[in-house]
Amino acid sequence: MELQQGIFVLMGLAMIVAAILAMYVKDLVSSIIAVGVVSLFASILYLLLQAPDVAMTEAAIGAGLSTLIFLYALHKTKDAEEEND
């Protein structure tokens, strides 16, 4: 029980750190990766809290697909900037 609570606290702290990093990191790619890390830890926490259904959704959509869609969107905005210059 003690160990499990320790893991919960550690993961929660890691999520908070990653979320703050996502806001303050200058490089946008790192910021997107940090958002993905938040989702990844959230999905592990869901799994430990006995909610495998939610964990699967979070891992597949939050950590997987949305990260990649953000990356594509970032790429697209960069293209638009180059065209305007």
């Binding site: 495998p52 259904d53 699967m56 959704t57 597949a60 997987g64």
Partner: peptide, 17 residues
């Protein structure tokens, strides 16, 4: 078992990705 339409669909979409 855990999972369902949404999760399975997302996994299939990740294969396309």
């Amino acid at each position: 078992s855990p999972g369902g339409g949404f999760q399975g669909g997302a996994v299939i979409a990740s294969a396309v990705l």
